[in-house]
């Protein structure tokens, strides 16, 4: 059986260290059209610690899925470096080896599976490619099916279309684990599932993380799920990181006005405390032509003139908590730029 790769830099070294990651997609530009780019991911930095679950949230078009695909090198980044446990991807770590150590589960459980392969073959495919003898790969597939709660004798020889969405997503998770990765990227992996099935799969993910010593990057638009499963959360807006920090701290004390608005937009579960006012007006702007300066300034209730011209830097406000907003940069020229303490937002939740 394939062994999980050994730990290199010790527990304090980040498993993933991302610097200046960028991806711009060209659009239009035909014969007469103007060449434009979608700034899907624009110079983002972040770290993923060993054994943690990092949640990535943001609205559609903010670049969260592009980020995951860049991490896997499913699309090539325009710029930036990805360092996996001390080894830079590219120079010293091959893509083939990277994808053995890092696996991904997608939202569409059906599109992610080859319809002509049985469940067992789908799971055993990766290990076979990596040189595992046929018998061992099959045994591994059956063992993994057990681990994800599907009886091998019932499911091993079935095809993807014979399974329900929840069962298929379990298969995708088993397949992701077949190469014994240390990190799994979950891109909206439970979003298409019904609530009762979603809870089952979340429980499974938590069990597997403990049993296999995994690290997760969990991308979702559902803030409740992200809060439940993540240790730290990264908030993206139009291709940039606006805030990153520990989940409880962020929910109790959101620093960035966008984070505060996002949290306040969550529907309540208390019939006596319905939301009275929408925290933000309008739709997120088009990432083709994002606003200059701070990209959030067009919707921000605290925006001042300076915000339209100066791009804020991601700066630390607290240990492990960073925010990208001029209000937290002393001397930035914003009238509220007094320091790093949290602003008082009215968060209805």
């Amino acid at each position: 059986m394939l062994e999980s790769t050994k730990d290199m830099g010790g527990p304090r070294q980040s498993l993933l260290s991302i610097k200046g990651l960028r991806k711009h997609f060209p659009v239009g530009g035909g014969l007469f059209g103007k060449k434009q780019v979608v700034r899907a991911v624009d110079d983002i930095d972040f770290e993923v610690a060993k054994g943690e679950t990092l949640g990535i949230v943001g609205e559609s078009g903010c670049g969260k899925s592009t980020t995951a695909r860049l991490l896997m090198h499913l699309i090539a980044p325009d710029a930036g470096t990805i360092v996996y446990d001390g080894e830079p991807v590219g120079p010293s770590l091959s893509l083939r080896e990277l994808r053995r150590r890092m696996q991904m589960v997608f939202q569409d459980s059906y599109a992610s599976l080859n319809p002509r392969l049985t469940i067992e073959d789908s799971i055993a495919f990766g290990p076979r490619v990596h040189g595992e003898p046929n018998q061992d790969a099959r045994a591994l597939a059956r063992d993994l099916l057990n681990r994800v709660g599907l009886k091998p004798e019932t499911f091993a020889n079935r095809y993807p279309h014979e399974l329900s969405g929840g069962q298929r997503q379990r298969v995708n998770i088993a397949r992701a684990l077949a190469l014994r990765p240390r990190i799994v990227l979950l891109d909206e992996a439970v979003s298409a599932l019904d609530k009762s099935v979603e809870a089952q799969v979340l429980n499974l993910l938590i069990d597997l993380k403990r049993d296999f010593g995994l690290t997760y990057v969990f991308i979702s638009h559902d803030l409740n799920v992200v809060r439940y499963i993540s240790d730290r959360v990264l908030v993206m807006y139009l291709g940039e990181v606006v805030e990153i920090g520990p989940v409880d701290e962020m929910w109790a004390n959101p620093r960035h006005p966008y984070t505060a608005a996002l949290l306040a937009s969550m529907p309540t579960l208390d019939p006596d405390a319905r939301t009275q006012e929408a925290p933000l007006a309008g739709d997120p702007p088009n990432p083709i032509d994002p606003p200059a300066g701070c990209r959030f300034h067009t919707r921000c209730p605290f925006a001042e003139e300076i915000c339209a011209s100066t791009r804020p830097r991601l700066s630390t406000v607290d240990t492990a908590h960073a925010v990208s907003c001029l209000m937290y940069e002393p001397g930035s020229g914003h009238s509220r730029a007094t320091g790093t303490r949290a602003l008082q937002f009215e968060v209805v939740s």
Binding site: L202, N224, R227
Partner: peptide, 23 residues
């Protein structure tokens, strides 16, 4: 079951109460 399987209010790391099986 639907109300108790919601992640809202569940504590991080604790298993969720789920409805077993599928419709």
């Amino acid at each position: 079951g639907l109300l108790s399987s919601t992640v809202l209010g569940a504590r991080r790391g604790e298993r969720l109460t789920t409805i077993p099986g599928a419709p």
